[in-house]
Amino acid sequence: MNQKIIALLAGLLFGAGLAASGMNDSNVVQGFLDVSGDWNPSLMFVMAAALMVTIPGFQYFLRRKPIFAQGFQLPSLKSIDRQLVIGAIIFGAGWGLVGLCPGPAIAALGYLNWEGVVFVLAMLAGAKLRQVQTT
């Protein structure tokens, strides 16, 4: 029960943060990625501000235990492989093309425009394709 309340609260704060920061606005995101055009550097500060909280916070808790769970669920892979690099590049290509990454894409479903719905459905299809290929 406690973990479910935390998950909902974290989602609410995360969604509010995405909306406040401009990450949900694909035009703002593309303005950030458009370094050779009308560059808008503001989104650099979104990640910087988030990391100002997460770096000290994660480092503090990593040496301890989570408050409501037995342990941390962390990725087991440690080495840098081709999948990681190629996957990140494919993701970046789509991100530049449309201006939405997965978090804002889900959050922006609430705006109820067909573009956002089409994008999320295609994103799920892309993920499913990868899942089918690797199982």
């Binding site: 990725p75 789509g94 093309l97 892309g126």
Partner: peptide, 13 residues
């Protein structure tokens, strides 16, 4: 774009 983002983030974990 959606296909690239979904496939790429899955592949790149």
């Amino acid at each position: 774009g959606g296909l690239l983002v979904g496939y790429g983030t899955s592949m790149g974990s």
